[in-house]
Design a binder for these strands. Structure first.
Length: 445
RNA sequence: GCGGCUAUAGUUCAGGGGUUAGAACGCGGGUCUGUGGCACCCGAUGUCGAGGGUUCAAAUCCCUCUAGCCGCCCCA
C-alpha cells in the first residue's frame, strides 16, 4: 500500500465538529466589528519578504527565524527572482494595502478588520501552530482624521472587551478566582521616547547583566526590552531596579496614555497597567496591550495582542498615518471556549447536540426518487433535511434519524400514492400522517 | 531553535521479549419482514507512528526519523 500523506507539522484539519464553533466565533466577531463601523479587508497570504523586513523589523524573531520564505523564479532572464513570504501577521499587509490603494486620500479614518491564516515556522505546541488564524482589526488614517486620538485606543479596547463578553468569556475577578480575561496595558512611548529609553536600559544593564541568567544576558545585548518580561525568578530583583519606561515618556505621550486610561475608566473596562509589557514587533509605539486568559491555554496565555503603530506607514514608504490595531489568536480563543464548555459540561452535563428538522426514510428503493423530491421541497422551504436510503431497514432508519434529526418522515408505497407522509416527532413520540403540502409547517413546529 | 514526556482498534486505554495483540465505549449484523432507543447473541476492528538494528523470537530492548504534548525561547 502506498504511504499515506499527512498534514504537515504544525498544520491541522478542522472537521465539522470543530468548525461549528469557529463559525460561531467568526460570526460574533463580524457582528461586533460591524457595530463599531469596521469593514472587512482581505489581503493576500503571500507578500514580498521586504514588507515584513521593513514593517515588522529585520531583527525580530519573527522575521529573522520564523518566516516561510522562498525565492520565486524570475519570469524572464532579465528579471531578478523575487523573495516571497507567507505572511506571519496581517498588520503590515493591511498598511501596505492602505498605502497602495491611496486610502489616505479619502482623508477618512479607515476601520478595517480581517480574519485569516498566518504562518510562522515555530515549534508547535498547544495554542501554537505553524498555520494559525488571527482575527484582527486596524484603525488608521491621516492625523487629521483623528487616528491619533486616545479615544481610538480606548474604543478598540472597549470593543475587544465587548467581544469577549459576548463570547461568554468571563472577566477575571475575585468572584471567579481570577479565572477569565485580563487586559494588560502599557505605553512604550513615541518613536523618539523609545530609543532614549532603550539607551538608558542598556546603560543600566551593563554593570548587572553578568549576574543574570544566560537568556537575559543575550537579551541585554540584542533586545533589552525583552529583559523586562523575563520569567526568571532569580533575576526579578535586578529587573525591578531597572529604569521604567514611564519615566522616559515625553509630555505628549504621557498625556496620551493618561487619556486612554481615563476613557477606559469611563467605559467600565477593567485593566492593569504593566510597565514591563513589551511587544515583539518593532512597529509598536505608545499604547501596547495584551489580553491574557488562564483557561485552557497552558503556557501560551496571551489571547490577543496589539498596540499603536504611528510610524509604520512611513516605514513602508507611505504618508504619515498613525494607527492602532490588534490580533486575536483565533486558535487560542477556540481553546479557551472549549475549556469553558468543558467546565460547564462538568457542572451541568453535556448539552444536547443541535439537530436538523427532519430525516426522510424511504421504505424501499422504489421510494428513493419520491424521497429526494420531497426533500427538495422541504429544503426549498428553508428546512434542514437529510434523506435516507430505501435499502435501509426501518429500524436502521430510525436509528440514523434519531441521531441527526428531530423528526422522522416515513415514506412507503401508501404514503406516496396518498401524498401523505408518516411523521414521528422524537421528543414527544407522537406519530401522525401529514399531507405533503402542509409538511413544511408541521416540521417547523 | 533547545530540553523532557508520549505514540497499540474510530475513541479512551491495558499488555514492558515467547504461538493467532486485548477491554470498554463506539461501529456492523441478528433475535425483531412498516416503528428505533432497552436487553441478549454474533461479527469486524489494527502495517502496535515510520524505518533500521539486537535476538532463535520484538508491540515489548536499542538507534534514527516523524508527529503530538509539557517546559524554555518567542508570540497570537
Amino acid at each position: 500500500m502506498a504511504q499515506i500523506i499527512k498534514a504537515i507539522r504544525g498544520t491541522r484539519d478542522l472537521l465539522p465538529a470543530e468548525t461549528a464553533l469557529w463559525n460561531r466565533v467568526e460570526r460574533t466577531a463580524r457582528e461586533v466589528f460591524a457595530r463599531y463601523n469596521f469593514g472587512e479587508i482581505r489581503t493576500p497570504v503571500l507578500e514580498a519578504t521586504e514588507l515584513f523586513a521593513r514593517g515588522v523589523g529585520e531583527e525580530t524573531d519573527i522575521v529573522s527565524k520564523e518566516m516561510f520564505t522562498w525565492e520565486d523564479r524570475a519570469r524572464a532572464a532579465s528579471e531578478k527572482p523575487q523573495s516571497l513570504t507567507l505572511r506571519p501577521e496581517n498588520t503590515a499587509g493591511v498598511v501596505r494595502a492602505y498605502i497602495e490603494h491611496k486610502l489616505h486620500d479619502t482623508g477618512q479614518l479607515q476601520k478595517l478588520y480581517y480574519i485569516g491564516p498566518q504562518f510562522r515556522r515555530e515549534r508547535p505546541q498547544k495554542g501554537r501552530y505553524r498555520q494559525f488564524f488571527q482575527i484582527g482589526a486596524e484603525v488608521i488614517g491621516p492625523a487629521s482624521s483623528g487616528s491619533e486620538s486616545p479615544l481610538r485606543d480606548a474604543e478598540v479596547l472597549e470593543m475587544l472587551a465587548a467581544l469577549l463578553d459576548k463570547l461568554g468569556i468571563p472577566r477575571a475577578s475575585a468572584a471567579n478566582e481570577y479565572k477569565g480575561w485580563r487586559l494588560l496595558l502599557n505605553s512604550v512611548g513615541s518613536s523618539t521616547d523609545r530609543p532614549r529609553y532603550v539607551a538608558a536600559l542598556r546603560e543600566a544593564l551593563a554593570p548587572v547583566k553578568d549576574r543574570m541568567c544566560p537568556d537575559n544576558q543575550r537579551r541585554a545585548d540584542t533586545n533589552p526590552l525583552r529583559v523586562l518580561d523575563s520569567k526568571d525568578e532569580a533575576d526579578q530583583a535586578i529587573i525591578d531596579a531597572l529604569p521604567r519606561i514611564a519615566d522616559y515618556l515625553d509630555d505628549a505621550s504621557k498625556q496620551h496614555f493618561a487619556d486612554v486610561l481615563a476613557t477606559l475608566d469611563a467605559c467600565g473596562v477593567p485593566y492593569t497597567v504593566n510597565p514591563r509589557l513589551v511587544r515583539g514587533l518593532d512597529y509598536y509605539t505608545r499604547t501596547t496591550f495584551e489580553f491574557t486568559v488562564d483557561l485552557g491555554l497552558g503556557t501560551q496565555n496571551a489571547l490577543l495582542g496589539g498596540g499603536r503603530y504611528d510610524g509604520l506607514s512611513e516605514m513602508l514608504g507611505g504618508p504619515r498615518a498613525p494607527g492602532i490595531g490588534f490580533a486575536i489568536g483565533e486558535d487560542r480563543l477556540i481553546l479557551t471556549l472549549l475549556a469553558l464548555a468543558e467546565a460547564k459540561a462538568a457542572d451541568e452535563g453535556e448539552p444536547a447536540p443541535a439537530k436538523i428538522d427532519a430525516y426522510i426514510a424511504p421504505l424501499s428503493p422504489a421510494q428513493n426518487a419520491a424521497a429526494l423530491a420531497l426533500a427538495r421541497i422541504l429544503r426549498g422551504a428553508g428546512l434542514q433535511v437529510e434523506v435516507g436510503d430505501g435499502t435501509f431497514r426501518l429500524k436502521k432508519s430510525f436509528d440514523a434519524a434519531d441521531r441527526v434529526a428531530r423528526h422522522i418522515v416515513i415514506l412507503g408505497e401508501d404514503e406516496v400514492t396518498q401524498q401523505q407522509a408518516t411523521v414521528k416527532a422524537f421528543a414527544s413520540g407522537e406519530q401522525r400522517k401529514v399531507e405533503f403540502h402542509t409538511l413544511a409547517s408541521t416540521l417547523r413546529a
